[in-house]
Design a protein around this nucleic acid. Structure first.
Length: 204
DNA sequence: CCTCTGATCTTCT
DNA sequence: GAAGATCAGAGGG
């Protein structure tokens, strides 16, 4: 049910702030090996500006095996392991060679809830399923194996447009990013975006 | 409600 | 050898 057209190259071929804002309200979909669709509306994102952004993995044009996907064309999945435990999902933005990306921080689950609850044994309510980057990966079954996926063509991992329009600015809350205190002045930059009043956001 | 801490392991210095 | 784009549980107020 409620399938929609997939976001295309033009959507991602923009700066990470623009993409982070426009991704709010769109539908993240992961098709399981058995064919089941798991999906949720993106309700929280963070922009990583690359090169000049001290909080980004590509600060100062640093290029490693891990962050290679950030250099890929917009729409490529960049999944990395955080704290040795959690796989965090980003979507690269801009043109090839531009190492920028958007971190998907929270989703509002819409399809495949029973499977998500099974994956996340600790979850007691719906808001425990996707209210954090590590949680949503666990719920949807996203792992390091998904790093490098082209979400413009992949049959497994992609984002669908829910409506012709994006969230109105008045419904978007802008705050500093989370967990980047090490980044000096960049820690305070207003690069976190979330849907105002949505209970599935990772935190206040 | 809040703060503190352990888990766990890849990546980079 | 240290740190990290996190989470969950424990303990105190």
């Amino acid at each position: 049910m409620s399938h929609g057209p997939r976001l295309d190259a033009a959507f991602y071929r923009a700066d990470p702030v623009s993409v982070a804002r426009r991704l709010l309200g769109q539908r993240l979909v992961v098709v399981q090996p058995d064919g089941e669709r798991l999906a949720g509306l993106i309700v929280e994102t963070e922009a990583y500006l690359g090169v000049e952004d001290k909080a980004a993995h590509t600060f100062g044009w640093r290029r490693t095996e891990r962050n290679a996907s950030m250099f890929e064309p917009g729409g490529t999945a960049y999944v990395f392991l955080n704290y040795g435990i959690h796989a965090l999902l980003n979507l690269s933005t801009g043109a090839a060679g531009e190492p920028t990306a958007v971190l998907v921080r929270a989703i509002e689950p819409t399809e495949g809830l029973p499977t998500m609850f099974a994956r996340r044994a600790k979850a007691k309510q719906q808001t425990d399923l996707g209210s954090g980057p590590g949680k949503l990966s666990q719920a949807l079954g996203i792992s390091l194996a998904d790093d490098g996926t082209d979400t413009l063509t992949s049959p497994r991992l992609f984002v669908e447009r829910t409506r012709g329009r994006c969230l109105a600015s008045a419904r978007i809350v802008v705050r500093p990013r989370i967990g980047v205190d090490y980044a000096g002045e960049w820690a305070a930059a207003p690069l976190r975006f979330y849907a105002r009043g949505n209970p599935h956001v990772s935190r206040r």
